[in-house]
Design a binder for these strands. Structure first.
Lengths: 255, 255
DNA sequence: GAACACCGGTCGACGATGCCGACCGCGATG
DNA sequence: CATCGCGGTCGGCATCGTCGACCGGTGTTC
């Protein structure tokens, strides 16, 4: 594979830099952050600004991400076949399970949430479409890891960040869990990401039976798990059924 | 202003092209669509793919937008100051008015929705954050046009697309409406975009009193308008109060 | 208040770099 | 089985992006 276009890679790095830092960044900060000459960084920023990918605060002269990215991100969702097919099934699952439903795909070293159905009660909830979740500490992530050796390889050997006392941080434990996931056909994560929150996830395959994403039902431990502390079998069944339905919708007819 | 970086502008054009066409596009289609040599288009696409801005269907070899755009779009929302300040006010407005609330900013030749609060009932609704609305046929758009001569200039002389029988399509009529908006301090759009839907919008200013966006309450004609066919004054008051509150939050202290 | 440091932005020369069009292998198609 | 069109590659040429010095304004410090 021949090399990449230098200016484009640099522009992408600038966008990621702006996305990472919480606040706006000045020209010099951007240039220093990527080891570029100021003139070079300025040329790229100027072009990104013209295209709407970056905006400049006229007062301070600092840069931040631009609106065009939001528009293109929405277009990404519009074209996304998995998401389109899964919309109705995710809705059904949320209603049947009475829990929040996420649809996630592998992206870089995490899970990107491409769809989110609120738990069907009136509690205040924020939409998490477009946000990333860790691979090692969520049900979505463990499902995707279990069926994607490449992603597992890229994740390295840890130890990974512990979000709660129950987060899996060691490679041996994670690989054991992944083996279990493959054996059972579903993954759970009980208080591994947030205290009090438990999730169940199952894999979605496309027409060539390749893994393309995962569905997940998530909610309070008290409702997701039974009195024995294990995930309620009926919830597992609902999630697996939804995953199968979406896979079939994508063309994976044979099981 | 010196010229833009060629490869970057071309990459942006490719992304817009992919966002516009509903389906995936092949390399040759992309090259032809922008008048580029195939090799050139391929180099840009390859780089965009490495950076995650574009994905390639391994089966057909066709290209579509990539997941990184969704992630960056979300980051745009995270940093967006107007949106952050407006979140709580928009929520209050939706509850008080009992209608859907939109928050929009000017982008290119339309209104980009940066926040959306569902009407507080249990009806099925789809999130429209990231979508675009026409300037000439929505309350949000007319508010932004009324206070931004540049945007009005860029819109040209019409006639614009008619979405319903009541859509304003002629420049004279639109300019008259804009004058009215400036005089009253708010805009309405009754069945100008969709049959049966009416909206009220008011302007949001930043600390230098420059227009930066608009809030809008939108719902069925029967609930938004009174028996005389005009928008209910109490709803207008709620929207204007919300707009003032957000503006004040942004630092526009003096009125 | 003057010297200073630092900012965003510009400029022009140099040469690395991205552009182009011919070419390749493959799969679909008749 | 020949043909067409596809995505992808390659190498030479000159264009285009890069770099570091430089400018004017602003806020800071002593």
């Amino acid at each position: 594979m021949p090399g990449a276009i230098q200016s484009l890679s640099r522009a992408a790095a600038i966008l990621r830099l702006l996305a990472g830092g919480e606040r706006r960044l000045g020209l010099s900060e951007v240039a220093a952050g990527l080891g570029l000459a100021k003139g070079t960084a300025h040329g790229i920023l100027r072009t990104l600004q013209q295209e709407g990918f970056v905006e400049q605060d006229p007062e301070s002269g600092k840069y931040q991400l631009g609106a065009e990215l939001l528009r293109l991100g929405q277009s990404y969702l519009d074209v996304h076949e998995l998401r389109a097919r899964a919309l109705v099934w995710a809705d059904d699952l949320a209603r049947a399970a009475g829990e929040t439903v996420y649809l996630g795909v592998l992206h870089q070293r995490g899970v990107l949430v491409v769809h989110h159905v609120f738990r069907p009660d009136d509690s205040r909830q924020v939409l998490e479409v477009g946000s990333m979740q860790p691979l090692h500490a969520t049900a979505l992530g463990k499902v995707l890891l279990a069926y994607d050796p490449v992603a597992r390889g890229e994740l390295g050997d840890g130890p990974w960040e512990a979000f709660t006392a129950r987060t899996v941080t060691e490679p041996a434990a994670l690989d054991a869990q992944c083996a279990l996931v493959r054996e059972r056909g579903w993954a759970d994560a009980v208080e591994e990401t947030w205290e009090g929150v438990a999730s169940v996830a199952a894999l979605i395959r496309d027409r060539r039976r390749n893994p393309v994403g995962a569905v997940c039902a998530s909610g309070a431990v008290e409702t997701v798990c039974g009195p024995d502390g294990a995930v309620r079998p009926s919830l597992v069944a609902s999630v697996r059924t939804a995953a199968r339905a979406i896979s079939r919708d994508l063309g994976a007819h044979r099981f």
